[in-house]
Write a protein that binds this DNA or RNA. Structure first.
Length: 158
DNA sequence: GCCAACGTTGGC
DNA sequence: GCCAACGTTGGC
């Protein structure tokens, strides 16, 4: 059982969008970064838990919990010439990009903001979200880091 | 294989 | 809107 953090822009596809989907489930398409791809392809398992993170917005931070509800499978948008995610170099016999289906589990009671987490970076250890220049849209979270966020959720915001 | 140019991410 | 950081592309 692994833990992850997935970023999304609330203006494009936020946690409210995920909740509104059929079965609160949606294919997490459009990942076009090899490091993120490798996490999905090599390490993601059905049942893994996911922090839903809002980026590029007023208060960037973790807003909810989701879970992985499929195995990794080829991202259909890579073969769709009409899609923004179309990749003409991807071979249908050996697809370059994969995705998993993500299902909403619950909203956090409050947003655990990036600012708060940065202020308490020493309680997170080595956390890629807090690393300088971090741009990965999918990144691993340790059990301790997962629990730390949930602990902060229960506290009052700083 | 190097590296400059370019595009994207994402916090602020 | 700005800009730092980083990934990708393509010329050589």
């Amino acid at each position: 059982m692994n833990y992850w953090l997935m970023k999304s822009e609330p203006d494009v596809f936020g946690i409210e969008h995920l909740k509104a989907c059929k079965d609160k489930t949606e294919p997490w398409d459009g990942i076009r970064n090899y490091q993120a791809r490798n996490f999905i392809r090599d390490d993601m398992k059905k049942g893994d838990k996911v922090f839903f993170y809002h980026s590029n917005c007023k208060t960037p931070g973790i807003v909810g919990i989701a879970k992985v509800v499929s195995k990794p499978y080829p991202d259909p948008t890579q073969f769709d010439a009409g899609s923004n995610y179309f990749d003409p170099k991807s071979d249908p016999e050996d697809p370059r990009w994969v995705l998993v289906d993500i299902q909403h589990v619950r909203d956090l009671k409050r947003t655990v903001s990036l600012t708060e987490m940065k202020a308490r970076a020493d309680e997170f250890g080595d956390f890629q979200l807090l690393a300088r220049g971090n741009r990965l849209s999918i990144l691993p979270v340790s059990k301790d880091q997962w629990d730390q966020v949930l602990k902060m959720e229960k506290e009052n915001p700083a």
